[in-house]
């Protein structure tokens, strides 16, 4: 081997070392908070105050998890996160189903049944993806009040469905536009009508984007805080609001282990979805860059 070749190889190896070293260091940085949350939630409060932060617990205890789930005080009630977890589920499931279904049919219409002004309509809807919700909170509160939906789960379902339509329509519109129009034309000649084409031809072909839309909506709605804190109070709050209340209780010795367990409980549903279907999650994320 010539010296030139040898030094080239050494440079290459050094480069690989640098690449892997950087990637691993960054990975540690990104994993650290999760690690800290988990180990803290498994420690006793005494151990935490004795100064153990990043290390493994001396004795694993699920005390903090039990407390966060069933006993922690939120406001005046001391029932833990459980009822709020249920609230979030009751809010998320119908809102995800509704907004995805509506987005699917909208995307279908905007690509396969184009009409004059369809692009304008799409543009109108698209801006909803980037709406700072602060600009609509006040009137929405008024509307929910007059519909007698203030502080209720159905009220939140309505809000999340309306503001979810923009994103789900974007997902399905960008997906259906890649399906050749000839397919709908063939179905038309076969005698299929508007709904028949949607259910028999388009929807079965849209499975991947249905998953993307459901995951995206699930993550968004589960993680929402602004609507929850603005439109609900006390017992009807979603889990993010309850978590924030637990953490911001200032009485007595701060129970960091309970805080971390509570944060983990709030994070687990979306984390599980992410781990199971990360690929689809990324697709939803990058679809925000409109063309996807």
């Amino acid at each position: 081997m010539s010296t030139e070749a040898r030094s080239a190889r050494r440079a290459h190896q050094f480069g690989r070392l640098f690449i892997y070293g950087s990637l691993i260091a960054l990975a540690i940085f990104y994993l650290m908070p999760l690690w800290v949350m988990i180990v803290t939630s498994l420690k006793s409060l005494d151990e935490i105050y004795s100064g153990s932060f990043i290390g493994l617990p001396q004795a694993i205890t699920f005390e903090a998890w039990e407390k966060a789930w069933g006993q922690a005080c939120i406001g005046t009630a001391c029932d833990g996160l459980r009822p709020y977890f249920v609230n979030s589920l009751l809010m998320v499931i119908p809102a995800v189903a509704l907004s995805t279904a509506i987005g699917a049919i909208n995307g279908y219409i905007l690509t396969k049944w184009r009409f004059p002004g369809a692009n304008f309509v799409f543009g109108l809807m698209l801006f909803g993806c980037f709406l700072p919700f602060q600009a609509v909170i006040l009137p929405m509160a008024q509307l929910l009040g007059s519909l007698r939906l203030s502080g209720t789960i159905p009220g939140l379902v309505l809000v999340h469905t309306v503001y979810g339509i923009s994103f789900t329509t974007l997902f399905f519109r960008n997906y259906f536009i890649t399906i050749p129009d000839e397919l709908t034309r063939a179905a038309q000649i076969d005698g299929a009508g508007f709904f028949r084409i949607f259910f028999s031809v388009m929807l079965p072909a849209a499975l991947p984007i249905i998953v993307v839309s459901c995951i995206w909506q699930f993550t968004q709605i589960w993680n929402d805080f602004l609507f929850g804190v603005s439109f609900t109070a006390g017992q009807s709050s979603p889990i993010t609001v309850a978590l924030n209340n637990i953490v911001n209780v200032t009485m007595g010795r701060k129970q960091y282990n309970v805080d971390m367990a509570a944060a983990m409980i709030a994070a687990i549903p979306t984390l599980v979805v992410y781990i199971v279907a990360g690929r689809y999650f990324v697709r939803g994320l990058t679809a925000g860059a409109v063309k996807g």
Partner: peptide
């Protein structure tokens, strides 16, 4: 690198 994106800002 991407998992934090799945978390709530509150978490």
């Amino acid at each position: 690198y991407l998992y934090p994106m799945a978390l709530s800002f509150i978490v």
